[in-house]
Each structure stands twice: as structure tokens, then as C-alpha cells.
């Protein structure tokens, strides 16, 4: 979270958002630099998913400035302009949401070829490379229903990467998984971050967040309570709410990552 705006790929300034009468975001300021990995942690309902949805224009805030990869997202008025932005920002959801009628390979190839108009042969090649990267080469012709949750989530990550996004948003991508498959998904994300992909993760995996993040952001009740390097948020914060939250969750998170490290 440097002050320099040149290297900032995402910048939120005083973002306010309500759904009807409910105020969900109450003045969010956040700057993320190219190549950074940022984890957003905080209690359920604090607005973490909504922050991600603002970034790729799935929701539009009532006020505030949002700049993503040079685009003023808050000023986009047409759906077609928002679609252009979403092609450049990948998002992976908790419920993977693969297309059940398509094979793993076709799930990955569909959007680049149909939406970006990419060459079919080149995209298939790219898809196979991505499958190798997420360690699922042998599942190219399987259907999503034949895969475990962890495998489906890795396909969903490959599907997002096939669009060659400038940054990727991960919204609690391990929360719906069996504990034994959490590790294989975190492993893939860790690799991605090491390759320099700008990543914003909403996560409950505290150990993982501590390990891979450049910055950790703690949200509560629609506000950013504190942010900083993992060391600071997890070990030297004075804020009693953060201490309580981190202390309450770290047990589960630690166990899950240890399983993953065995892979």
C-alpha cells in the first residue's frame, strides 16, 4: 500500500455502498500495487465480498472513486463498459460455479474463444498449460460433476486465468471445500502469487494469508479497521477486535494449510 499512484492497479477512495436501507460499505480506502497479494479478512457480513464486487463492477457504489487498471470504474455507465472491465479482472467464487454441461477443457476454452474472440487452437494449448499448472492435466475431458470440490475449484482458477486477467479476485475460494482438499487449492494460489499475479483474496485461512500476503486488510462493519504487513496485523496489533478475531480463527486455518503443505 504505497503512496505512489503510478504502480497502483486498484485504488478505492472513500467508497460508500448501500443495498436499499442497509449501509454495507461506509468509506473504504484501499490501494493495491501491481504484483501485490492482498488478503482481506474480517467477520462475516463485514463487506469483504462487496469490496471485490465493486472492483470488477458487479455492483456500483453510491459514492467514491474506484480506479482499476487505469479505468474509472465508478464512472462506467453502460453495461457494455462494465463487461469490458470484467474481461480484464478475473474472479473466483466460493462455489466454483463450473459449467456442468461442458468438459473441464471446454469450461476453460469457452470464454476466451467466445467472448474475447481468441484463436481456438491457441486457446486449447493455453488451457492445457493451465491445467498442468493446477495439476489436473489428466482431467481435461472429465465433466465437473466427476471432480472433487478441490479439483473443481482449481479448474475455476484455470478458467479465470485463461482470460489473461490483469488481476484476480478470490472470494473465500476454500470455504466450501472439504478440509482435505483445501491445501491443493491454496497450493495453486501460492504458485500464482509467486509468479507475480496481482491477487486480492478474501479468506479465512489465517496461516495462509500470513504466509503469502504483502498486505493484510481487516474489515469490520463496512469499514477498514486496520491494514499493514501480515506480521503487524497478526502479531503486533493493538486492536483488541483484530486480536480476538485472529486468535479465534487461527486454529482451523493452521491445520488446513499444514495438510496442504504435504502435497
Amino acid at each position: 500500500m504505497s503512496a505512489s499512484t503510478d504502480s497502483a492497479i486498484v485504488k478505492l477512495e472513500n467508497v460508500h455502498l448501500s443495498f436499499g436501507q442497509t449501509q454495507v460499505l461506509k468509506g473504504i480506502d484501499l490501494t493495491i500495487n501491481k504484483g501485490d497479494a492482498v488478503s482481506i479478512i474480517g467477520p462475516s457480513g463485514s463487506g469483504k465480498s462487496t469490496i471485490l464486487r465493486c472492483i470488477n463492477a458487479l455492483v456500483t457504489p453510491q459514492s467514491g472513486k474506484i480506479t482499476v487498471a487505469g479505468t474509472r470504474v465508478d464512472q462506467l455507465t453502460k453495461e457494455s463498459e462494465r463487461i469490458q472491465l470484467r474481461k480484464r479482472v478475473g474472479i473466483v467464487f466460493q462455489q466454483y460455479n463450473l459449467f456442468p454441461h461442458l468438459t473441464v477443457l471446454d469450461n476453460i476454452v469457452l470464454a476466451p474463444t467466445r467472448i474475447l474472440g481468441a484463436d481456438k487452437t491457441a486457446t486449447v494449448k493455453l488451457a492445457r498449460e493451465l491445467l498442468e499448472k493446477v495439476r489436473l492435466s489428466e482431467k481435461a475431458d472429465a465433466y465437473p460433476g466427476q471432480l472433487s470440490g478441490g479439483q473443481q475449484q482449481r479448474v475455476a482458477i484455470a478458467r479465470a486465468l485463461a482470460m489473461k486477467p490483469e488481476l484476480v479476485l478470490f472470494d473465500e475460494v476454500t470455504s466450501a471445500l472439504d478440509p482435505e482438499t483445501v491445501g491443493e487449492v491454496l497450493w495453486v494460489i501460492r504458485d500464482l502469487i509467486r509468479d507475480g499475479m496481482t491477487s486480492i483474496l478474501v479468506t479465512h485461512e489465517m496461516r495462509f494469508a500470513e504466509e503469502i500476503s504483502d498486505t493484510v486488510v481487516f474489515t469490520e462493519n463496512g469499514k477498514i479497521v486496520d491494514y499493514g504487513p501480515p506480521q503487524q496485523i497478526f502479531h503486533s496489533t493493538d486492536n483488541p477486535r483484530i486480536r480476538q478475531f485472529v486468535g479465534g480463527l487461527s486454529g482451523g486455518g493452521r491445520g488446513a494449510v499444514r495438510d496442504g503443505e504435504g502435497i
Binding site: N56, L58, E79, S80, I83, Q84, R86, K87, G90, I91, F93, Q95, N97, L98, F99, P100, H101, L110, A111, R114, I115, L116, R159, A160, M163
Partner: peptide, 28 residues
Amino acid sequence: TTQWEATKGLGFSRLQALRYVILPQCVR
């Protein structure tokens, strides 16, 4: 609705989502 959400996140328009993702699942 999560299927629509997935297409939206990938930059599909509503009609593209219908054509490539929703309707093929409806046929069956």
C-alpha cells in the same frame, strides 16, 4: 443464479450467457 454470476465474472453479456451457458443446460 450462480451460473449467471460465473458468466458475468468472465465478461459474458446476458445474451452470450444465455446462448453458451444457460440454454444448453435447459435443453436437457
